[in-house]
Design a protein around this nucleic acid. Structure first.
Lengths: 253, 253
DNA sequence: CCCTAACGAACACATTGATTGTTCGAAACG
DNA sequence: CGTTTCGAACAATCAATGTGTTCGTTAGGG
């Protein structure tokens, strides 16, 4: 078992049980207690759980978004396929806005070296595209990164968005339904997504099936603002057809 | 010999000779020709030199600034000492502007975890501070990164700077003299440095001795806008005393 | 106040990834 | 058309990381 697998296993177990001891987790993972202790320290630093002497307890409430470091390793190949489709929808010469989130980060990797101008809205994507080879042009938006997520938000981000217009925006989202529209976990991020939609002529949403039919806290806008939705086959059929009725073009990979 | 040492050796040799063959460089470095070829490809990608069949020729004119990747490994311990002094001049709770350049990047490393708000003006520094532990707060300026340097410039950067005020700015520079003032190699960077000075209450310049008495192309402003200059003992004494006469406080480490 | 369990530091070991050199077939230049 | 250079592939080497063990220290409970 790799390190990240064990981290996910521990995070999930602690989240479900609420509280677990080091010994229980060592037993569960098959690793030594020292390794479990090191894992718990790392997960605590990521804000996933809280350490106490002898074990750990969860910090994530039900419905909370799992931290970025864990989401990165969930539904990996679905995200990769979705990202590949999104990248293929982008034409050379375009100016592209790239949202934060793990799926969009995967898109960023595929855009390296493409002949486009891209403005990524997360620190991670900036890192990926920061040393991209020619002819890719990078634009950095201002902003304050959300802890753990690296998603840029705030007045500087909104100002950067309002100063520019883009051919295509690639949007990630936490929830998307025909009824409740697009939603995000974080209010500031939702404000950024709203501005993104305003600044872009074409909006591509990249969301694996688990996001469809789900509703998060912060409202972004109606589903009709999504021109193209790229998702995978795990998306519920009733939801996708309802989204299609609202005017969104579907790409299921 | 490490990889970066060999790269520097090759870059310097090609720069001085103008043109060298793979065989000559393999002989010089003691590495195999395959390794030299790989090195040349990497240096060509960095814009240091131009590949041709059988060897490479320099792209750097005399007086040009060597690329970032090479400067990082020059005067390493002087930069580190200067950076340590700069970091010690910054008080907890301050808001700090951090310029681009290799010396300021070293400062960024020392600011990780400090209780400050910091806005770095280069991609590299953003990368270093992007996952800084609490209680460091990061602000990202907008901008277009200069190829190879990662220095953020342009209207978005200027807008971000004009929207904020800072307690302290840490400025790197390419040249600083009492007579010609502060100068940079790049016009856009000079414009950013001007805005930096305007947005900061206190200006600390971090420049190793080689920068003093040197004048580059783009004018930033008179030396009197530097409140504190942190440099090392290789700085020419006549220059430092002239700067001191202009009102700059000296810290020689 | 003491005892026990948990912790963290230090070391050894394994595994992984990066770097380098070699070989060989392909391509470029004269 | 021959020679030289190049690039891909493979194997060897080295560094870095992750893991487990040991042992002295510390925190908390009785």
């Amino acid at each position: 078992m790799s390190t990240v697998e064990r981290h996910r296993l521990i995070a999930q177990a602690v989240r479900e049980a609420g509280t677990l001891t080091v010994a229980e987790l060592a037993d569960l993972t098959g690793a030594s207690d020292m390794t479990v202790r090191r894992d718990l320290d790392q997960l605590a630093a990521q804000g996933v759980l809280e350490r106490f002497r002898g074990g750990a307890r969860t910090l994530l409430l039900r419905g909370d978004e799992p931290p970025f470091a864990l989401r990165t390793h969930e539904a990996v190949d679905a995200k990769r396929r979705i990202a590949a489709e999104v990248a293929s929808l982008i034409t050379d010469g375009e100016t592209v806005l790239l949202d934060s989130g793990t799926t969009c980060l995967e898109v960023a990797r595929l855009l390296r070296g493409r002949q486009i101008t891209v403005m990524p809205l997360s620190l991670q994507a900036i890192g990926v595209l920061g040393d991209a080879p020619e002819p890719t042009a990078l634009l950095v938006p201002g902003g304050r990164p959300r802890a753990g997520e690296g998603a840029l938000t705030g007045p500087l981000t909104l100002a950067s968005l309002s100063a520019l217009r883009f051919d295509t925006a690639v949007l990630g989202c936490c929830g998307l339904t025909a009824g409740d529209g697009m939603t995000a976990y974080d209010l500031d991020e939702a404000a950024v997504k709203k501005a993104v939609v305003t600044s872009a002529r074409r909006v591509i949403a990249a969301a694996d099936g688990s996001k469809l039919g789900r509703t998060a806290h912060a409202y972004v806008g109606p589903s009709s603002l999504v021109d193209i939705l790229v998702t995978d086959a795990t998306a519920p059929a009733d939801e996708t057809s309802a989204l299609e009725d609202n005017g969104t073009t579907l790409k299921i990979v």
